[in-house]
Computed example of a mutant assay.
Amino acid sequence: MTAAHADLQAEFLEMPEGLRIDRPEVADGAALWRIAKDSRTLDLNSSYSYLLWCRDFAGTSAVARDEEGTPVGFVTGYIRPERPRTLLVWQVAVDGAYRGRGLAAALLDGLTARVAEESEHAPTTVETTITPGNTASERLFTSYARRHGATVEREVLFQAGQFPDGTHDPEVLYRIGPLSPASPLSR
């Protein structure tokens, strides 16, 4: 982590003791898959997809590491091709032993600060989808919006019937923005 990343990280939520935010590496893919699987709330993608994600989208994703460097949480995202000022957050998960310490919020803040710092056109909007009843994610993203002086718009992005397996809840799009001038994404 560069000194600039450490400053950006410290500016928002304080990391729980002994943890740090870093870029994911391919070697982290298996741990991210396990954390997602153990969450019991995320749609579990193939293990292959987590390896690819760590390779191809490391710049728009973040991992929290413990003192030994082992991943204990992650956030994955990407810049929307048709909306290059929008960061879509795909998944956020924290290992059960580290939940309740503000790690997911610190990861989200750290990621968006890094993306803004490293992007040619800093994102002004964050999007994610949340299934109805996922209270933890609803709280995470509405508190993120408050911290960044933004509003939250919600609309159903995918209806339950659009999923081919027939067992998926609808996915509600949360569009957070515009971010305030004091927010790291607006710099």
Rank of each mutant, 00 (worst) to 15 (best):
D109C: 14
I21W: 05
G161N: 07
T60C: 09
T70R: 11
D109K: 00
N45L: 09
W33T: 00
W53N: 06
R83H: 15
E25I: 12
V126T: 08
Y174V: 08
V75Q: 05
L51Y: 06
L52W: 03
D169R: 08
Q9C: 06
S46K: 01
R34Q: 15
A97V: 09
D169F: 02
P132M: 13
R99E: 12
R101C: 00
D43C: 02
E120F: 05
A136S: 11
D109Y: 07
A10I: 02
R175I: 12
W33D: 00
A97K: 14
V156C: 11
L185S: 12
A160K: 07
L42Y: 00
A150G: 02
E171K: 07
I35S: 01
R20H: 12
D43L: 14
T135C: 00
R23A: 11
E127C: 15
D56S: 13
R175N: 10
G102E: 03
R139I: 13
A97D: 15
T125Y: 13
D43R: 05
G102C: 08
A97F: 03
A122F: 01
A30H: 03
H121L: 13
D28F: 04
D43W: 05
A97G: 15
G18Q: 15
R175K: 10
D169N: 02
T135G: 08
G18V: 13
V172Y: 11
L173F: 08
T76V: 04
T124H: 11
V72G: 07
E127P: 09
A136V: 11
D169W: 00
D165Q: 13
T2H: 14
R187N: 10
E120R: 12
W33Y: 12
Y174G: 01
A145W: 06
A145T: 03
S61Y: 08
D38M: 01
S47Q: 11
P84G: 15
H121I: 13
N45S: 14
A113W: 01
L88P: 10
P24W: 07
C54F: 00
T167P: 00
R147K: 13
E127Y: 09
V156Y: 03
L32H: 03
T86W: 09
E117W: 04
P178L: 03
A3C: 00
P181H: 05
H121Y: 12
R83M: 12
R99M: 11
S46C: 06
G18M: 15
R83K: 09
A10M: 06
T2P: 08
E17P: 14
P181V: 10
I176K: 04
H121D: 13
R83T: 12
E153D: 09
A31E: 08
W53R: 04
D38A: 13
A62Q: 02
P81H: 14
D43F: 01
I21H: 04
